[in-house]
Simulated scan of single mutants.
Amino acid sequence: MHACGHDIHASVALGTALALHRQRNRFSGRVRVFFHPAEEAEPVGRRSILSQNLLDGFDHAIGIHINPNLPVGVFNAIPGAVTKSADQFSITFIGEMAHGAMPHKGVDAIAIAAAFICEVQKVVSREFPARDATVITIGKIRSGEAANIICPEVTVEGTIRTRTRERRQMINERVAELAHGLAALHHGRARVDQISGEPAVVNDPGLVARFQRIVVEAEGEAALSTDQQEEGSDDSAIIRRRCLRSTSGSAAGRPGNEWFLHTPTFGASDDLLAPTTDAVVRLCLDVLDDPATG
């Protein structure tokens, strides 16, 4: 299960569509509501949106994602980069098989992979500013078939996340360079496959200011948070127009809802449906009334 709260997101989108349809005599212009598929499974989500021309003909985009770090009824919205880019890599280290009692007659691919896993974290900690919030995660390793055999081939798969376009290109290049260099150092080879995923989502300052004002007017100052950048990624960055991606609280801290996204025990409260839908509808009407942003 994806466990990212998309049932809540779909409910908010449907509620927004119904509310705006009932108020269709209050505004001129068009609102297009679409249910975003597979936002973390590039290129499936992006490809389906583009192939159906869902992005044609509109000027602004509004997206909401639930956030377990916030209590119900609190919204977070900040300008600039609010998510990270998400690239993937699959690196196969190739050595030479030998008997485990005679390792000098082979080239140990597991040893090469182990060296890479340790050294690749130094790329982040020693070559990139901490403010970039760059992350390299190794999530999958496939290797070996017997305990007494020098393994000839290891595949390491992982993800790279960062907020800036310049650092994104640089870190992908460094990961590939490190893999080839360490493999050669250990008399092996490396085959590097890199998959470019979604870029970081960059919020439009004008839309953010509108949303912040609407939240405060409707719910008060306590309902607005402006100090949280998201650590995850999604492909709403393909909407290269005036974009707002906000997060809303999902009852973190309540019994049964203490867990974060993508865990099998994650839960979101129905209590956030009404205030989140109301905030989105208010922002849509505000933009339709005055399409210009600051």
Rank of each mutant, 00 (worst) to 15 (best):
C4V: 08
C4S: 09
D7F: 10
D7T: 07
H9L: 10
S11R: 13
L18I: 13
A19T: 14
R24N: 15
R26M: 14
R30A: 12
F35M: 08
E40M: 08
L50M: 13
L50H: 10
G63A: 07
P71V: 08
N76C: 12
I78L: 10
G80M: 02
I91L: 12
F93Y: 04
F93P: 04
I94E: 00
M102Q: 15
P103T: 07
H104N: 10
I110A: 02
I110H: 00
A114N: 08
C118I: 09
E119D: 14
Q121V: 11
K122E: 10
R126K: 14
D132I: 03
A133N: 05
T134Y: 03
I138L: 12
I141F: 05
E145Q: 09
A147E: 15
A147K: 05
N148E: 09
I150P: 04
P152E: 02
T159M: 10
R168K: 13
E177G: 13
E177F: 14
A179M: 11
A179H: 09
G181P: 07
V192F: 07
Q194R: 01
E198L: 15
V201E: 03
D204A: 02
L207K: 02
V208D: 00
A209E: 12
E221K: 00
A223Y: 05
L224T: 01
S225G: 00
T226C: 08
Q228P: 08
E230Y: 09
I238P: 03
S246C: 15
S246Y: 15
T247D: 11
G249M: 02
G253H: 02
R254P: 12
E258V: 09
G267M: 11
D271F: 09
T277P: 09
D286M: 02
D286H: 05
D289K: 15
D290F: 02
A292W: 09
T293I: 10
G294E: 14
